[in-house]
Design a protein around this nucleic acid. Sequence first.
DNA 1: TGCAACGATGAAAACGTTTGCAGTCTGTTC
DNA 2: GAACAGACTGCAAACGTTTTCATCGTTGCA
Lengths: 334, 334
Amino acid sequence: MPSRPSLVQIAERVGVSPATVSRAFNRPELLNDATRERILATARQLGFRPSKVGSSLRSGSTRTLGLLLPTMSNPVFAACFEGAEERALKAGYSVMLATTGYDARREREAARSLLDHRVEGMILTVADPARSATLAELAASGVPFVLAYNESDRHPFVSVDNFAAAGDMVEQLVASGHRRLAMISGPLDASDRASKRLDGVLDRAARLDLPAPTHVSMPRHTAADRDRLRSLLSSPRPPSALFCSNDLLAASVIAELATLGLRVPDDLSVCGFDGMAFGALMVPSLASVHQPSSEIGSQACHELLKALAGGSSRSVRLPHRLSGGGTVARLAVD
Amino acid sequence: MPSRPSLVQIAERVGVSPATVSRAFNRPELLNDATRERILATARQLGFRPSKVGSSLRSGSTRTLGLLLPTMSNPVFAACFEGAEERALKAGYSVMLATTGYDARREREAARSLLDHRVEGMILTVADPARSATLAELAASGVPFVLAYNESDRHPFVSVDNFAAAGDMVEQLVASGHRRLAMISGPLDASDRASKRLDGVLDRAARLDLPAPTHVSMPRHTAADRDRLRSLLSSPRPPSALFCSNDLLAASVIAELATLGLRVPDDLSVCGFDGMAFGALMVPSLASVHQPSSEIGSQACHELLKALAGGSSRSVRLPHRLSGGGTVARLAVD
DNA sequence: TGCAACGATGAAAACGTTTGCAGTCTGTTC
DNA sequence: GAACAGACTGCAAACGTTTTCATCGTTGCA
């Protein structure tokens, strides 16, 4: 197993200068056809491919983007990744991915590591853009970045309008005859999305003269806590519909309800937020606010690339869409 | 926005040699306390962090691993990624992730790109290790790699024993009173796992004197084709249980069955393979062969790190586990 | 014939680090 | 007082590229 040959060794072998070998790969049109072929043939034969490490150093450009997302276990972020990756690939960029597990410390470390690798730009989702140390550091570093899913008035982002979207779901629940709602979320301080969605729910409920929806916060983002769920349902006038701040949580809620002997939607309606592909496969299918995750990723990447090309990134709000599902019952009017 | 300072500029600023600055970060114990502090302070103040590009070039080590997986939309691979990432992180490695979308061409391009970036090792899942051009190239390159999910007698891998695992599921189905089985998979030539699982099913069925299970191949890995499903069920003696070669496919099958008016498990039993976390949240919960995806990722990474440390990687078969679920009915004996 | 322009290639510097070797102190030991 | 050890730091080369500038033939044209 020969240690990878370098451009210089190819040059020696072929009997040309390193510059010429370099040109054979980067500016092939500059070379005499015969020379070029001779070089490429030798390169192929020896298994040579130019090292990006060397070229990054010399050119000052790594052609690599950093992606910093909470977790890949949430299909929303997985889709976002794929959207961004595809877009990056088309533009000739590679992707370094790091996950934070919703942990601020890991988030900071990972961002630093990405910067150390000299990624040229970054796409990331943080807990709360207003208080994120990571974001401050990133801004100070001068490396362009675009937020995904977060909303911010200080930094470019790509997301849906969480406030409005949550409100629209309330409206749809009301249209189905529901008036007593509850919002279920994970820890609010670890997700500005969840906060915005809750605000949207409360606001719209108020406008529609609904009784103020209860809010229950679960200890984890994507798993329902059985006791808190039970206590919510045993209140004097329990909700007829549970709006969960994300789809995984909704699925978990439904599963917990089943263990409590409650069937969805017959005994209780449930809906989520995200529109993950999987929701459509559930039986009954999960009602949700669909956000175009893959597009969020690709758009974020697109905006980032604009910045890298010397332009500047704009914030983008992509349209959401209510995807009705079998988990919300149509109630007879009181 | 000041362009990132280099180690040399810090050196000048502090009034020491570049070597000393380098040591402040890599061998701090070598330095006089005062010097070290002066350097680190200036570095912090100017926002300097040593560039991995420079150090990779000089040291010949990028401390980066490549991950090449079919898709992040399948939670199995997402979990595998997270397992590997965590393990890599602990060892001080970063991760470059690329997805192939089950496409051989993209697979090859992505592998090359990772090699160009001089990843020190690679973890990957290919369609069929025996015929993979990517794998051949990779082996020729001399970069160590470990297969995940694939099984091979020529390359190190980490996976479950697909043949045996599928057989065990057959056994469990039989224990629940099922005798007429069907296996549903995606395109076999794009997944050696699916093939092995099918073999396992056929083999065990034969041993148990079952009627030979039908096999239906769907055009896509994770989506059921309605027509093929219908034609399977309208055969003279239709199966009572459908064994799907992965969980996403199983979920899709269940959803399709629902649109055909068939309820699971009352009218038909369904089970999958993967044990994705999500299956447990389905109602009823999805019966499946659980493979420890996160551990597959971390073990693969572990084996890879062993190779990088000068040792060699061994193939590992991790234990599978049948996770009984509500989607398989317990039939009365004929 | 002379000169410009062009095509093809080479020489060398530069990118940001790391590290073996050598050097300068200081303090210690006979 | 000399030799020496140890602590600390500097010098300079090297890693694999890219790119500017220069060079050398050739060709086209006046």
